[in-house]
Design a protein around this nucleic acid. Structure first.
Lengths: 339, 339
DNA sequence: ATGAATAATGATAACGCTAACATCATATCA
DNA sequence: TGATATGATGTTAGCGTTATCATTATTCAT
């Protein structure tokens, strides 16, 4: 199908074959006006015959645009981030953009700026930071990104920076309130790592909701999002002899671990303890018992951040703002009134 | 930190400031020999002062290399693929390469070639296909990729194409044999979608292993990898009145669904039915009961495929081969001898 | 019929970098 | 001492596009 001796096909080759100037071919390729129907057809035929594809590097050198966005992600193997990355890529593709991916091990200024350089700050029209943890500040990012517009995803709530976030405070509130409304009076928590904005928000909101209801916050232990850590956190809670009947957990994986620990301890869910998770991973409905949880729309998070970023790229003077999405409460069988 | 009026900093600006030619700056940037310690230092200082970063597009236009690899993935939200993507990116970074990501909804020739073009076949030094499903053939890919080297991951076993795969046939064999060795005689299966090479391999191997042991393969139902489908598949199995005591499931998520269905049906695991999964997702140890499963090393899959691809990029006449990795059996509490 | 608008094309110069060659010291050897 | 190697630099010419300007043919109103 291809030439054996791989010589790159350029605009000029097409122009020669079509009997026009390379500039005209460029016009056809870029859908510019002022090309007669006739030549357009001839050029298109030549393009197809030679299997020509424009060279991105050359184009972006001439245009100073790359139609590429960089995604800098912190730990994208978890369900949420993986979901986001997928939807970011799909939305970008739909809008004619390509995605360059880079991961960082920590959100330090050093690592992040290295990632930005790696992604090639000047080879990218915009940057997306999946930055759910405390680390570089907005001002750091401004410095690192220079004139490249960027959007942060899943970052601090109510910060006036270009970002798209979920109001997890609200999510945790409805989860906790749900347990209160069922009649629970001692409600413990297994939180995510408090270096994460989301974990922080959920934790604070759990406490505040209890206080607002005139209840003393139950014991709280910190996990690291994994099922294992949820298991261990629950063990620790039980070892402390805490007598809670409600348990709010920072995500579904940890909730699974907690379920396992409670079970081992001879406690039944929901008869003895009600458990509510966070995220609504696809598996949550098949835990035993099916998990009451708070659904986060990671897909929307990904999509909207890309849309926002592209707006910023194409209209640089768009005012900065934070878009806030709301999670949704999902009631299943892991919660019920205390006995 | 940056100039307010965003003028791009070029090699020339650095050269001017350092009082050398732009070529010398280029030499410094690319660590070429024949630059005196003294000028090198001067140039580096100038680079730092101006915060210069080489322009990728220009460089790759001049070099005809991009130090970028394209990853074309089919459904990367599942645990395995997400794991792979992460490790691909990390390995690539370590080796000085950047990753461009593209997803396809199906492995059809059409979609795949579109993705390859989208990724910019000519803006990429090599391509990685996460192609676990039946679809485009090796020859299709050769045509689509032209002279760009590529490696397939997690594809057909024993195909003599540049690829890195896990021997899932073997994995399913040890899983099934484990149940046989425990004394189970009726062993059912919930397979993944048989359009996936892996699902196919596991399915065939489950059957073959039983036949080799002189046993009749139990009933088999097809799922779609989700917990929901595992739940429904198990329901269907039970509705058929199948009297199996062993159940081999195509992945851990479906196994979770099956666990839930068995539980609902009043069957205890492992007392009444032994269940073995596949993948060893981090949650599997916290299912109830903890799941016996077959661990796949997705990290290694990702790493090795990148290493292989880079070899292909840098030494184009490397002979084609398939690297095969082996899964590992993990015994937990969901399997035991039948009563 | 004339000038002005407009459609269709081509020519030329960037874009920022590196490869390849050219140059000029300086060091090394017979 | 002259010939030769080699270290350190500069010059020039692309890489494959697109922007910009220039040119020609065509249409249309006056």
């Amino acid at each position: 199908m291809d030439k054996p001796n791989t010589k790159r096909i350029t605009l000029n080759d097409v122009a020669l074959l079509a009997g026009v100037s390379s500039q005209t071919v460029s016009r056809v390729v870029n859908n510019h006006p002022y090309v007669s129907e006739d030549t357009r057809r001839r050029v298109l035929t030549a393009i197809r015959k030679l299997n020509y594809h424009p060279n991105r590097a050359a184009r972006s050198l001439a245009t100073r645009r790359s139609c590429t966005i960089g995604v800098i992600g912190y730990d994208i193997t978890f369900y949420g981030p993986a979901q986001m990355v997928t939807h970011i890529e799909q939305t970008a593709k739909r809008r004619g953009y390509t995605v360059i991916l880079a991961t960082v091990d920590s959100m330090t200024l050093d690592e992040v700026s290295q990632a930005v350089v790696g992604v090639g700050a000047n080879a990218v029209d915009g940057l997306l930071f999946i930055s759910p943890v405390v680390g570089v500040t907005y001002n750091d990012l401004v410095n690192v990104c220079g004139s490249v517009p960027f959007v942060q995803i899943d970052t601090e709530l109510f910060a006036n920076v270009p970002s798209v976030v979920i109001d997890q405070r609200y999510g945790s509130q409805i989860a906790t309130q749900h347990l209160i409304d069922l009649g629970h009076r001692v409600i413990a928590e297994i939180s995510g790592p408090l270096t994460w904005y989301g974990a922080q928000a959920r934790h604070t909101s759990w406490r505040d909701t209890l206080l607002a209801a005139g209840l003393e916050p139950g014991p709280s232990v910190e996990g690291d999002w994994t099922a294992r850590s949820g298991y261990e956190a629950a063990k620790r809670l039980l070892a402390q002899g805490a007598r809670f009947t409600g348990l709010v957990v920072g995500n579904d994986q940890m909730a699974l671990g907690a379920l396992s620990a409670l079970h081992e301890h001879g406690l039944r869910v929901p008869e003895d303890v009600s458990v509510v998770g966070f995220d609504d991973v696809p598996e949550a409905a098949y835990f035993s018992p099916p998990l009451t949880t708070v659904r986060q729309n990671f897909a929307a998070l990904g999509e909207q951040s890309v849309e926002y970023l592209i707006t910023l790229v194409e209209k640089p003077d768009t005012p900065v703002h934070q878009r806030v999405l709301y999670p949704q409460f999902i009631e299943r069988q892991s919660t019920r009134p205390p006995r």
